[in-house]
Design a protein around this nucleic acid. Structure first.
Lengths: 413, 413
DNA sequence: AGATTTTATCCGCATCGCGGACAAAAAGAA
DNA sequence: TTCTTTTTGTCCGCGATGCGGATAAAATCT
């Protein structure tokens, strides 16, 4: 545990200042002072240090004339060139790589259309390494200029350990991508669940910037869940993010089912396969194509196809209702490429949630649908890495753990 | 938001010292220094201030001879008389009141056998006020000696506002017990969910003292859920603790059901009523009695009675499995007076959880059964109040909220 | 050009935590 | 008994921090 010393004090306040500058764009020292409730003196000292470290820069050009008299404010903003980070997203059929600057602007990105779910972890690491090196050099940078790399992938990830416990796109389990890439690239590399990255991106850059609590449910081939709670990503006691697909949607009496087996695109397609095949006899089409077809048919009035989508929506709605009961988030964001944006899926979900929620929680949560671009994922990866560079000192002052060496002696006496 | 200033530093470190003294009993300054990783100087200064405030006292008597030479350690402990607090537990058929000292030892307690579920909130407040005053005077104290009062009751409670949103033992909703009692007694009064109190008690005094994460599921007339996550009581975004009874246990396809309607003692008794009546024609017996009877019959080999209990256990197991998936707590504590301790209920619950959990989480959680005494609840209420007196300064340094007055101007520019 | 107003910085003060020197208090050794 | 050794607790000085008030800076208004 870290003790509370002047250094921690400064770290906390410096983070608040950085956070204010990041969130409120070019901003003057007085405004920072008001936002953070720090004294003008302290803000001045901290910004001086930040300027000295080249983490922030004054917005030159007489620029903003702020229509009052008095000494003009000097607007401060993040220095885009202060650091560069790389974000990587692993999806079943694609590896996306992007280089961003200190403001999380994507400078250069790269997409490798690879069906990685049939590759070994070692091959995937090779591909990621190549992609990162290429993307960095395309951006006119050297690998030594990169401050950090963050990889997002679906599945259960233990960020602290840098290990992917299990993923639908990896055959192996407990893959130590973090250390592996760190060694390969000579740059600190971390991994996290893809949904966590996009959740953080939403919190830093999205329309829910001002919310400290929301859920992100990602519906693609597999299901992902990101929880922002009290302004922090929620993780279970073991440091793992909860896996939405592992939630159960049926009681023992009715035969149990994992949500992933009922409401993911993969499961829906299996369900719909028979329906599709009997009208399109040339075998089961490819994933992306099949979902498009299913949605088209539902839109065209095919009741059975619509029913398949509705069933998935209702199952997910059931789980979402329970999550709302637990977390009471003001917003729930449903995202995904194909199915998640279909009314035939979303409306049953909405209805189910409304129907299942207790009256007291009926109005707390807005359910909104949003589609992410690759840029969002990369910004999330950037945010995850930049968070460390900003020096967020949280979780360091928790209650003292029992120190094994000492506890026995003391506990007994 | 509180800024990080020297005062906060001191508050944090003082809390760590207090926490170490509380947790490790009589303990010397050197040991505190090792436990908290604070320097000996700082510990000395802080303990001096605490001694000055009479919050701690040296354990006099040459007492502990610690079998080494050198200056003997001065053992420090909490000063039991530093403060007194009152805990109140509202149950359907009883009001329990207890006075504890600064160490959360119960000095005097009092039980009023009242069926409060048929009284108005106003009458209940009358009874609580009388009970508190009586208990305080019985303990040889004056009401002015009391530093705080905490009331625990089943249902949905918004602690921060001091309001009980909804409770099975109150007809009214949004009852402002906190302010009401504060005015009546002239002492700061707070309320919280009863399970939260016992969860905190378990964390402070129970066998899970060293765990920062666990769940407490309380099964009595109604269902309660307490979550300790990262060493803190978990609350939803609105400050409410999640209500276990509002969780859903069936997917829309199979017809939905609130957990409270399937797995609480109240619901089980309704379910079993027919079974009981047809062999004991003198009408439905009283609640406590009926459950005893049901358990006896199940133990006696009555398959149908056992089945009713098993169904409840399985339904709760379903919910617990999902909670484990989310929170991954090393321990899950099932508590309650009657049903919760029956093998006919617990075994199906255990089996269901084991069956539903994904393999990766199969071994993370121990499910244990524990029965609380009234003392536990009262200690929880005491802990909840004492926490404030200890001056825990957490949650005060979160990211800066958007200040309404300022945000618009800044956000747009 | 001078007064006014707003912004940013400088100076002095109080508090804090820490390291090292020092005092205190016991047991063991002479 | 007296001196040494060992461990514990306290005191002093240092550096860092945040803050309030005075001061400088830089613009507009008169």
């Amino acid at each position: 545990m870290k003790t509370a010393d002047p250094e921690l004090m400064r770290a906390i306040n410096r983070f608040h200042v950085m956070d204010a500058i990041r969130r409120f764009g070019p901003v003057s020292r007085v405004e920072i002072s008001q936002l953070t409730e720090l004294s003008a003196t302290t803000v001045s000292a901290i910004t001086a240090a930040l300027l000295d470290d080249r983490l922030i820069i004054p917005l030159q050009v007489g620029a903003v004339r702020d229509a009052g008299r008095g000494r003009p404010r000097v607007m401060l903003k993040l220095n885009p060139g202060a650091a560069h980070v790389v974000g990587v997203k692993l999806a079943p059929d694609q590896i996306s790589v992007g280089v961003t600057n200190f403001c999380a602007d994507v400078l250069r990105s790269l997409a490798l259309p690879v069906r990685i779910d049939r590759q070994t972890a070692s091959v995937i690491a090779d591909l990621v390494e190549d992609g990162v090196r290429r993307c960095v050099s395309d951006a006119g940078l050297d690998i030594a200029d990169i401050s950090g790399v963050c990889v997002g992938l679906p599945g259960v990830v233990e960020r602290a350990a840098g290990v992917c416990r299990q993923s639908p796109i990896l055959q192996e389990r407990d893959v130590p991508f973090g250390d592996d890439l760190t060694h390969r690239l000579g740059v600190p590399a971390s991994i996290d669940s893809d949904v966590n990255l996009v959740t953080l991106a939403e919190h830093w850059f999205g329309q829910t910037r001002d919310l400290n609590d929301f859920l992100v449910v990602n519906v693609e081939r597999s299901l992902g869940l990101g929880i922002l709670h009290n302004g922090e990503l929620f993780r279970g006691a073991n440091g793992l993010s909860p896996d939405l697909g592992d939630l159960m949607v049926r009681p023992p009496g009715g035969g149990d089912a994992r949500l992933a087996d009922v409401a993911s695109e993969a499961s829906v397609l299996i369900e719909a396969e028979a329906l599709m095949r009997d009208r399109e006899p040339d075998g089961a089409p490819q994933t992306g194509r099949a979902m498009t077809l299913l949605l088209q048919r539902a839109a065209g009035g095919d009741k059975r196809c619509a029913r398949v989508l509705a069933a998935a929506g209702e199952a997910l709605g059931f789980a979402v209702a329970n999550l709302i009961t637990l977390f009471a988030p003001p917003k729930v964001i449903i995202s995904g490429r194909a199915m998640a944006t279909s009314e035939y899926f979303i409306e049953p979900l909405r209805k189910t949630v409304a129907h299942l929620l207790p009256p007291s929680l009926a109005d707390v949560s807005d359910i909104i649908v949003r589609e992410w671009s690759d840029g969002n994922w990369l910004q999330g990866a950037a945010a995850m890495t930049l968070r460390d560079l900003y020096g967020a000192p949280w979780g360091t002052t928790g209650p003292a753990p029992i120190r094994e060496a000492l506890a026995p002696q003391i506990g007994e006496s």
